[in-house]
């Protein structure tokens, strides 16, 4: 483990703060979605994956495909913090002619594939994981999906292929915050029971608290001896870390007002202060 759990928690809080600031500055972004998966993305790049800016083009690196591409602001901040590109680049986020747009593109160092249209990340990851099997390489492939995204049929085509090919080097994570843009996922289009569905498609399913750093690190670094792809159903809170944004579908892509912004800053800095001790 590179960082201890408290250091990872601190970093996740710092990433939330940077994301909150970035969205307020640019007046655009998927606030609730970023905050929901901040702990998972932070853990992947600071503890779990065998990948650094120096090894990003190495064929043996671990790979990450962010299928829920709209939560790009947290990814940008985690990548910048890890040294994939200068922090100052993010000041151009969503500005004219900037590569730092509202969904991931591989014009940016550290990003594997272009995403944004939902339901692509799992299939892309199946291809990468299958390539590892064909070439007898031992890298791992991680992908992060939303729970609303589970309504896309292409997710299940990819899940079927992952199970068919026994891709035990593939870890799919669902950011299971139970909210999507129009409201509760169960009422928009009920995709439950997700654990049972993925198990039926041939996955080893693990359920965790996706905002608990200890559980995230434990499950993502655990060996997989099941001969099956792994699905982590990560129960999360949309808008996690900002009290008034938590569990509110309306914060899916809402930009804070000046007052809300300051309150959010205060809340996040309190958390950061507590973890810095």
């Amino acid at each position: 483990m590179i960082l201890d759990i408290q250091a990872l928690q601190l970093k996740a809080a710092q990433m939330r703060l940077a994301t909150w600031q970035m969205i307020y500055r640019a007046k655009t972004g998927h606030t609730g979605s970023d905050l929901s998966c901040a702990d998972i993305v932070t853990a992947l790049y600071n503890d779990v994956m065998q990948q650094t800016p120096a090894t990003f083009t190495n064929p043996n690196r671990d790979r990450y495909v962010q299928s829920k591409g709209h939560a790009v602001e947290i990814l940008y901040n985690v990548l910048a913090d890890a040294g994939y590109f200068p922090q100052a680049d993010l000041l151009t986020y969503s500005q004219f002619n900037s590569p730092y747009i509202g969904h991931p593109t591989n014009h940016i160092n550290g990003i594997e594939m272009n995403t944004g249209s939902l339901g692509h990340g799992l299939g892309l990851s199946v291809g990468m994981a299958l390539a590892a099997k064909l070439d007898q390489r031992d890298y791992r492939v991680f992908t992060l999906m939303g729970d609303g995204e589970q309504a896309e049929g292409s997710v299940w085509e990819a899940a079927m292929a992952a199970g068919n090919y026994h891709l035990d080097n593939l870890t799919a994570i669902i950011d299971h915050n139970r909210l999507q843009i129009s409201g509760p996922t169960e009422s928009v289009m009920n995709s439950e029971p997700l654990a049972e569905k993925y198990a039926a498609f041939g996955f080893d399913v693990q359920e965790i608290d996706g905002n608990d750093m200890n559980q995230i690190v434990t499950v993502l670094t655990a060996e997989n001896n099941t001969n099956k792809p792994r699905l982590i159903l990560a129960d999360t809170i949309k808008g996690k870390g900002i009290s008034f944004a938590e569990n509110q579908a309306s914060w899916h892509h809402r930009v804070p007002t000046a007052d809300e912004y300051q309150q959010g800053i205060d809340e996040l800095q309190t958390v950061i202060g507590g973890l810095s001790k």
């Binding site: 495909v65 594997e112 594939m113 291809g127 990819a158 079927m160």
Partner: peptide, 13 residues
């Protein structure tokens, strides 16, 4: 659809 997406992942690697 999946054949095209999986092929893209294969090509990427």
């Amino acid at each position: 659809q999946n054949s095209v997406t999986v092929a893209s992942g294969l090509a990427h690697s």
